[in-house]
Structure formats: C-alpha cells, structure tokens
C-alpha cells in the first residue's frame, strides 16, 4: 500500500534532523512513530530533530534512550516519549513498564526497534524506515514514512 507514503533522501545527520523537524510540524497528540533501521542508521538523530521541531527546550539533550528504555522530553508543543525497546524481549515486558500509558497518551511516541513490540502498537502507528545508501555516500540514507507499524 503506497497511500501517503513519503520518501526523503538524506545526505547527512543534519539533514536527517531537518526532515524529522518537518515531520514533527504535523504531529498530533497520540501519534506513534516506529523507527526502524539498523544500528547507526539515524534513529536517535531523527528523534533529536523531531524534538527540535516540537520546540522542546533542549533538543540537544535528546540522547539515546537505550539505557533507560524511555526518555521523556517535555516543555515543547507536545510531550515527546522517546523509547528504545531493543532490550525488551517480549511485549509483556513492554506492558510491565506501562507503555500503554504513553501509546495512548497525549504526547508523541517515537519508538526505536519497535518491531519487538509490534503486537502492542495501535493501528494508527506510522513507520519511519531508515536505509543506508552506501552507493550514494556513507552518510546517505533513504527515509520512508508510511502508514502502519513495522512488518
């Protein structure tokens, strides 16, 4: 299904941040974005740019949430819930940390490695796919925004 699919080419981390900021302009309360792509593909940089787009006061503080699973950034247009669920082994664990509260909350969820908890993601989830394009340069990424959660 290609409905509403949007594709960007990013040539740098800065450009990835800018694209994220653009997407953040349209963000609504309750939006859920599943960020998928391998290590180093730009997921955390995207989250930083997204925070800037929401006018979170210190977007440079948006760091990898790998250690704490969830980092909350408030003070912007909408609260930003930034997850890295890489270390969750199954959806019950995500349940145990109360992820529903955020998925169905009044902020925006960005979820790295979301395929690990795909059963829990609401139908309105959008996926942002990061793909390396080594043939176009080491820092080149194709970023695809599409409806639906990760496969």
């Amino acid at each position: 299904m290609n409905d509403g699919e949007r594709i960007w080419e990013s040539g740098s981390v800065e450009e990835t941040r800018r694209i994220a900021g653009e997407i953040a302009q349209d963000a609504q309360p309750g939006d859920v974005y599943a960020l998928t792509g391998e290590l180093g593909a730009g997921k955390t940089a995207f989250a930083g740019g997204f925070a800037a787009g929401l006018h979170v006061p210190y977007p440079e503080d948006v760091v990898s949430p790998t250690y704490t699973i969830l980092q909350i950034h408030e003070g912007g247009r909408l609260p930003l819930y930034h997850f890295d669920v890489y270390r969750l082994t199954d959806p019950e664990e995500a349940d145990a940390i109360g992820i529903d509260e955020y998925l169905f909350g009044d902020g925006v969820c960005l979820i790295e490695w979301a395929s690990r908890i795909r059963e829990l993601l609401p139908p309105r989830t959008r996926e942002v796919i990061f793909e390396r394009r080594p043939e176009r340069g080491e820092d080149c990424r194709r970023i695809t925004l599409r409806q639906g959660g990760p496969a």
Binding site: I69, Y86, R87, L88, T89, E92, E93, A96, I97
Partner: peptide, 9 residues
C-alpha cells in the same frame, strides 16, 4: 544470553 540487560528480568 540476551546481548544486554533485559529490564524485566
């Protein structure tokens, strides 16, 4: 075994 800390465990 899991390649990292598993929070629930």
């Amino acid at each position: 075994l899991y390649g990292g800390v598993v929070p629930e465990i």
